[in-house]
């Protein structure tokens, strides 16, 4: 089966520091991959390499079989990105922000379709036409999710998506990820949330000092064992 996200010996150095040691990774459609690791482990660097925001020192990142460094604009048609802090244009409403992002992605949705995306992502209907400057972090996150839904992307990149969300919102988010996965979207998520990662992922990678030190299927260990394994690596 073709891979929708792939890293081939992908590495990144900042002067003398190796931020990402050669990484090899493949994701199939519908797969959810969680990357666990402490701050500075190289999780966000990996995501930024797939987004084309930084250039690799070695190897290559591929999205839908296109090399990111060579097709920096084209690959973005196939991926959606939700950062840890979704920041929207504060003077525009959630609806206007979504309209802008989906138009940039090349879609011309009708107003009711855009509203449906926002409602499906869990944004209260009364908030849709309010300025996002007054939104909570969770509400902004939901507009980000709606933008990802509207983009019908093959790959969803998430950087600490549940950080700062309350348990209910976090749970809703997990359900949405599973739903997207069932629809064939591959999800690549950097997270600290071991419990959530185990709950939704098909595969989990543990990263330390820029290196993928362990990879496992989520069914191999329960949450307690996974946490123990993770902490063992961190204490080494």
């Amino acid at each position: 089966m073709a891979f929708v996200l792939e890293a081939k010996n992908l590495s990144k150095n900042y002067q003398e520091k190796q931020a990402l040691k050669p990484l090899n990774l493949q994701l199939q459609p519908g797969e959810i991959y969680s990357l666990l690791g402490p701050n500075g482990a190289g999780k966000s660097t990996t995501i930024n390499l797939f987004l084309g925001f930084i250039e690799p020192t070695g190897g290559m990142a591929l999205i839908n079989n296109l090399e990111v460094a060579k097709h920096p604009v084209e690959i973005k048609k196939h991926l959606a990105y939700i950062p840890e802090q979704v920041v929207l244009y504060p003077n525009l409403s959630g609806f206007e922000n979504l309209s802008l992002l989906s138009s940039l992605a090349g879609f011309d949705y009708r107003a009711d379709t855009l509203n449906d995306f926002l409602i499906r992502s869990g944004l209260p209907s009364e908030a849709i036409n309010k300025r996002t400057g007054a939104y909570s972090k969770g509400m902004r996150q939901k507009v980000g999710i709606a933008a990802a839904l509207a983009k019908r992307a093959k790959v969803l990149l998430l950087d600490e998506p549940t950080s700062g969300l309350d348990p209910k919102a976090s749970n809703e988010f997990s359900e949405l990820l599973l739903q997207l996965s069932a629809e064939g979207t591959a999800v690549f998520m950097a997270t600290h949330d071991i419990f959530r990662a185990r709950e939704v992922s098909s595969r989990i990678g543990i990263m330390k000092a820029g290196e993928l030190v362990h990879e496992l299927s989520s069914g191999e260990l329960d949450a307690y064992e996974l946490e123990k394994l993770y902490l063992n690596y961190m204490h080494d």
């Binding site: 925001f53 973005k76 992002l101 940039l104 983009k151 990149l157």
Partner: peptide, 8 residues
Amino acid sequence: ALVLSQPV
């Protein structure tokens, strides 16, 4: 980041 994650 949000805008440039679009094909622009």
